[in-house]
């Protein structure tokens, strides 16, 4: 009972310490475990595979740095996949910070790994626009009602990639990276459903369970959190072995992730042992 009493009055900072150690220790081990894509992640991969080279893909980055550890790896994996298949990618953002995330992805992944891809021809950064659902509603009808320039202020009419793009229906696929609202739900409601455009979501793990009702009839696939990103990295590596030397951030983090889960489950079990022991003592 004294042990239980000790745990019951345990200072929360000890719990913090355990959690901290549980995630730091596996970092030192540098383990790498194989991942296998689940059906919903594979569905996104297959959708990208099924697009004709040259098809336009819209990638709204609707997240900020607070959720970047989950969404950056999946964005990098999907962008690598799309550019490898010679798809043309339009980046944009419904979140102000999303433009920063796009800029970092372009300078950190696209430019060094795909030096042959030309800005304005193979990919473009349309930047951030305010309005959320209002913006989607506007560009579903007319792209130029809101996007007159790219993020750098270059008129869209002078960019080869935008020639012939009149509204959202000209995109063959919308791959949204979303951390909340406005995000994947709005893309399904205001673009995918009314425009009959295939929409897939790469979302934070918090948001992923909420999006399951839309699969598969309204959303072609879903990547949830770091695990979803690791699965996409695995699918990409299986299909494109040339990426074996590219960094797979999500896969690297799956072991520390598992250890942290384990510690949290231990605490829940311990909490319940204390609870039941107290209840039994109370009955006596």
């Amino acid at each position: 009972m004294r042990l239980l009493a000790f745990f019951k009055t345990l200072d929360r900072r000890f719990i913090f310490l355990f959690v901290g150690l549980a995630v730091i220790f596996p970092f030192l081990l540098d383990l790498d475990l194989p991942e296998y894509p689940t059906v919903m992640v594979k569905a996104i991969y297959n959708t990208v595979e099924g697009l004709q080279p040259g098809s336009l893909v819209l990638m709204p980055f609707d997240y900020d740095p607070s959720t970047a550890p989950e969404l950056d790896p999946m964005a990098a994996a999907v962008v690598r996949h799309c550019l490898s298949r010679d798809l043309r990618v339009c980046f944009m953002a419904l979140w102000p910070e999303g433009q920063g995330m796009v800029s970092n992805l372009i300078s950190g992944t696209v430019q060094p790994e795909f030096p042959d891809k030309v800005y304005g021809r193979d990919y473009v950064n349309l930047g951030y626009k305010a309005g959320g659902q209002g913006l989607i509603n506007a560009v579903l009808l007319n792209m130029r009602s809101m996007f007159t320039t790219d993020a750098a202020g270059v008129p869209v009419d002078s960019l080869p990639i935008m020639i012939g793009v009149t509204n959202l229906k000209d995109f063959k696929f919308i791959m949204n990276f979303s951390a909340g609202r406005p995000g994947s739900k709005e893309w399904i409601q205001f673009a995918g459903d009314p425009g009959r455009i295939p929409v897939a979501s790469g979302s934070t793990a918090v948001q992923a369970p909420l999006l399951y009702p839309y699969y598969p009839s309204q959303m072609v696939g879903l990547m949830g959190g770091l695990k979803g990103a690791a699965e996409y990295e695995a699918a990409l590596l299986a299909g494109y072995p040339r990426f074996k030397d590219s960094r797979r951030v999500a896969t690297e983090l799956m072991v520390p992730q598992a250890m942290a889960h384990f510690v949290i489950m231990l605490f829940i079990v311990l909490g319940n042992i204390i609870y039941f022991a107290e209840r039994r003592a109370g009955k006596r």
Partner: peptide, 21 residues
């Protein structure tokens, strides 16, 4: 922004221990 949200990992663990019965 990222660290503010990273803090929540610790509080989720603490809350799970104290309240998840």
């Amino acid at each position: 922004s990222a660290t503010m949200f990273a803090l929540l990992a610790f509080y989720v663990a603490s809350a799970s221990f104290r309240a998840f019965r």
